[in-house]
Design a binder for these strands. Structure first.
Lengths: 250, 250
DNA sequence: CGGGGCATTGATCGGGTTCAACCTGCGTGG
DNA sequence: CCACGCAGGTTGAACCCGATCAATGCCCCG
């Protein structure tokens, strides 16, 4: 459980190309590239450099801070938490990564990962060697464009939570954001699981765990949502969106 | 003063190639590309698509939120502030951009600029058409790599201030960061001008302007620095760095 | 049944905001 | 040349949101 999963390559899923393609047809990264103007043969080039990693189980690390940077990865299933730990041992959660989202982009500047990435539940990944995908991106404008966009999006996303918002605004933005991202991947936007612990949410939103509890409770009392342990249902999306608006900048 | 400077092209500086090169030899963007493994002829390709913009004067905008995105720009001289304004009119400062730094990277995902960029003093820019530089990046691995690194760096930088740090830590990190970036561009790391207003610093650090005043005063009383209006001298770098350490993650 | 980790709830505390007044340098016009 | 105005900056006092500390509750798993 303290080992790192990235170096390991689950080679049997690479047994034959047909298998790879079948697997990868569900990989959102490839699909997004397609929509960015890549043709079928280009997609083949992309697929041959994919390594399928997983399943990883809750608590297993994808990579750790300081590991040599070689690859980015697209989440295919599950949730990955990225975080850093400061010298006094406090954990700072950088983000939660759902299926279809890419991790490791913040490592490109530098030869080592600047943060940890850990599976919160059972996680499947597509791993892309960064040197190789760089070379490929030079040949495939659609891929280059896609990478540029992904990184640009992360820059914007990172500044979102930097604002000085109230606990209510932060929590609403977190829930609405989660809902939207899940919806984009075909999951229900109104009923979903919080795959992360309260303390993780708190660390991510820069709040105390107690505050997370209280805000969720108040939201429930006010009829905005229904929460039971990690099961969540959004009841008044309008009002939550209104709260989240200034954070998400609609 | 309410117009946008980006569309305008100061064509006379493009009169002949020699002139462009002379101008651009001071452009940090090109220099960084060189160090990223680009050869001389590749640099020429880069230079022919540069447009030199400026001088812009304090208060003039480089671009505004919602403007169609066409180009990124490297600051050659002066300071550029990027910011957004939320619906209730509160300004949120995203960053200050010194000579050698690139603005507009967060616009790549989307066809419009997601923020405003304004000159804080007299500013000179190198403007790079993004479609053109993308095409060029596909031919020049060094350039592609450089763009990837720039964006990756911004992702990391953006999450820096997202942590919940004390006012002292934020201010120290701001000053040390500024000092380091100025030093990297050949300016004095110990004596420099705060080109931005106190309220800008406050908005950037998510503090009240009053807090910025008080912290600066206390730092001065404690002998950490000397500040007079916008003139600043760092006196005890060690201690400031110690304060800033957890923010800057050394 | 017992234990341990996570979550909730209550009481208190404190850093930073807010509100308000005042200061200070500088440009402007009489 | 000085009075005025004004924007940016500073200082002081009260307040408030969220943190912290402490205790209790609740599941899940052994």
């Amino acid at each position: 459980m303290s080992g790192t999963a990235f170096p390991r390559l689950d080679s049997k899923v690479l047994a034959d190309d047909g298998d790879v393609l079948r697997f990868c047809s569900t990989c959102a990264f490839s699909q997004a590239c397609l929509s960015e103007g890549m043709d079928k043969s280009a997609l083949m080039d992309l697929h041959v450099l994919v390594e399928h990693v997983g399943p990883l189980h809750a608590g297993e690390h994808v990579f750790r801070e300081g590991d040599p940077f070689e690859a980015i990865a697209a989440v295919r299933a599950g949730t990955v938490k990225t975080y850093v730990v400061d010298r006094d041992g406090h954990e700072q959660v950088l983000g939660f990564h759902l299926p279809g989202e890419v991790i490791g982009l913040n490592a490109i500047d530098g030869d080592r990962y600047p943060c940890n990435a850990v599976a919160l539940d059972t996680v499947m990944l597509c791993r892309f060697s960064f040197p190789k995908i760089s070379v490929l991106a030079a040949r495939l404008p659609g891929l280059q464009q896609h990478l540029f966009r992904l990184m640009s999006r992360d820059i914007g996303r990172a500044s979102l939570l930097a604002g000085d918002y109230s606990a209510d605004q932060r929590m609403a933005a977190f829930l609405i954001g989660l809902s939207q991202r899940l919806a984009a991947r075909g999951f229900s936007p109104d009923r979903f699981q919080l795959t992360m612990a309260r303390t993780d949410i708190a660390n991510y939103l820069r709040l105390a765990p107690e505050t997370v509890s209280r805000v969720l409770k108040r939201f429930q009392d006010d009829g905005l949502l229904q929460v039971d342990r990690r099961e969540l249902e959004l009841l008044d999306r309008k009002q939550l969106e209104a709260l989240a608006a200034s954070v998400l900048r609609h």
